[in-house]
Design a protein around this nucleic acid. Structure first.
Lengths: 117, 117
DNA sequence: TATGCATTTAACCGACAGGTTGTGAACTCA
DNA sequence: TGAGTTCACAACCTGTCGGTTAAATGCATA
């Protein structure tokens, strides 16, 4: 009943595997075909092909055709969406914003005490 | 042989579920106990409890004790790590950086042709 | 045509995900 | 003590994940 087809979920799911993130890192340095992509791994090429399908379904890569090769290309739009989702939480870790919040808190406290300066 | 214990993988895995992201969204508005957290969902509280364990193991929440209640609190450090990982890819979607890359590419091409200006 | 290379697909397997129900622990209060 | 509440845990079930091997597909070339 799961396998949420919702965009963010499938993107995050695709990213939650070190092999797939490694493939994306490789593709960030340029297009590559399946044989090249499987080279660093000890698994079969069929397994890598499955990983590529997951990445493709998540929209993280596109595949072209060049005779018998299928060059893979990184597509960053879903990553942008993840970054966008994360923005809502930035205030929970951004230190300068933490300080800002503390500052605002102090200001508010000062106001409550009627000690504006 | 999988179940990567690596930090980023378990964080992204935890985030790859809409229920768990919903729980985080709720916690971003303040602490809550398990009953409150399960309220919006039609699943059993045991299921939510399992989701909370996943979030806890990923370091995304911590749980206190207050008599029979277990207040949950958002912990954003793993989210910061995800954002950090994403930074390496920002140039692939940031349009202004795209233009910068094109500009650099043009410059490089000019150098290769010996046409520096 | 036959051969070879790159890649995908199919069938299978063990492990885990995500839900259920039932039981029980820990705590509060009458 | 006993009853009610909150929550966790164990057992179970179904479906998916991530890998395997073997066969099929698509293309290039002798």
């Amino acid at each position: 009943m799961h396998m949420s087809t919702d965009r963010l979920s499938s993107t995050l799911f695709a990213l939650a595997d070190p092999t797939r993130r490694g493939i994306l890192a490789r593709l960030s340095r340029g297009e590559a075909n399946v044989t090249e992509l499987s080279e660093p791994y000890e698994m079969s090429m069929a397994a890598v092909s499955k990983h590529l399908k997951v990445l493709e379904r998540a929209g993280l890569i596109t595949r072209g055709r060049e005779s018998q090769w299928r060059p893979c290309k990184l597509e960053a739009a879903p990553l942008r969406d993840v970054a966008g989702w994360l923005e809502d939480y930035r205030r929970f870790w951004d230190e300068s914003l933490d300080r800002l919040e503390n500052y605002l808190e102090v200001l508010q406290k000062g106001d409550a005490d009627g000690k504006s300066s």
